[in-house]
């Protein structure tokens, strides 16, 4: 009887999450593209050989990891600072919380378009300001310089998701009883020491949740890049999800697209494990 209530949820979750993964695994072992008339013919791991020798895949994997690592680290640090700030009592705390959450609530594509304009050369405000202060600069070419373009996407991502991480950390901060800080102060600890000795250790599960959650999201970054740079310039900002998308929708190569997605998933699990181990390692170093 009780199971009956759970059934629709189980069915839908299996349909939406599990079936696709199995389908990808199957497709990744088949050729299914325009060449085969979109019919799936077994090709005995040819997709995987192709993947291993595909420079664009590895370039995208590197770019995705670079993007995820930098934006998640920045987000965690900034979010922690903001959470410490918002944990204090002051007037209009509620409204400030809403304002700082706005970037998170707006559609990614909407704000990606906004950021593209902000970084536009030469008419965006940043370029214009640079020109205003130093007329020697013709244009900064934020979005057309392969070395810089990915940084602008990191800025946009950090802007959009830091408030969300801050909120999670804030929830964690509010579970720490004030007595702990008072007891620590009575033993002669300073405020700064309290942050390292009490706040950060007790916040560990919240850091972990935010890091893993954000890492997974950043690894699947798609909308933001698609709208801001379209993967360019020269493919320098293309993410794995975009490459899979292009293979499926533009080249109509479903077999290879599935292979990329399975590979991305494996890389993500690996990245998650590594960051988990790193956190534990650093925790041991701190003590």
């Amino acid at each position: 009887m009780i199971i009956l209530l759970l059934l629709p949820a189980i069915v839908l979750i299996i349909l939406i999450f599990c079936v696709p993964l199995i389908r990808y695994l199957w497709l990744s072992l088949h050729a299914s593209s325009v060449v085969t008339g979109l019919e799936a013919l077994p090709n005995y791991g040819a997709n995987w050989f192709r993947l291993i020798n595909d420079d664009r895949f590895w370039q995208d994997a590197l770019q995705t990891s670079r993007f995820a690592t930098l934006s998640v680290s920045l987000e965690i640090v900034l979010a922690f600072a903001i959470a410490l700030l918002l944990d204090q009592r002051f007037r209009a705390r509620g409204s400030i919380r809403v304002i700082s959450l706005l970037p998170w609530a707006l559609p990614t594509t909407v704000m990606a378009l906004g950021w593209r304009w902000i970084f536009n050369s030469p008419y965006g405000p940043i370029d214009q300001l640079l020109i205003l202060f130093n007329s020697n600069i013709e244009s900064s070419n934020f979005l057309s310089n392969p070395d810089i373009a990915w940084i602008t996407t990191v800025v946009a991502d950090v802007w959009k998701t830091t408030p969300f991480v801050a909120l999670i950390l804030l929830a964690g901060l509010q579970t720490i009883p004030n007595d702990l800080y008072e007891a620590f102060r009575l033993e002669g600890g300073t405020k700064r020491q309290a942050i390292f000795r009490i706040t950060i250790p007790l916040l560990k599960p919240y850091f972990l949740i935010s890091i893993i959650f954000r890492l997974a999201q950043a690894f699947g970054v798609f909308d933001l890049i698609q709208v801001m740079t379209g993967g360019g310039p020269a493919g320098s900002t293309e993410s794995l999800a975009m490459y899979a998308y292009i293979n499926a929708m533009r080249f109509l190569d479903f077999g290879y697209s599935s292979t990329i997605m399975i590979a991305s998933f494996i890389l993500l699990v690996a990245a998650g494990t590594i960051s988990f181990l790193l956190i534990n390692f650093f925790r041991k170093v701190i003590y």
């Binding site: 909407v110 378009l113 709208v227």
Partner: peptide, 29 residues
Amino acid sequence: LPVAIARLAGSSVYSVPYGAYAAATVIGS
């Protein structure tokens, strides 16, 4: 909405008449 906005963006990366896009994002927000 997100797809409509992205379509606007897709039309051209370097197009200058950006005002209409901005208006669309404001309405969408």
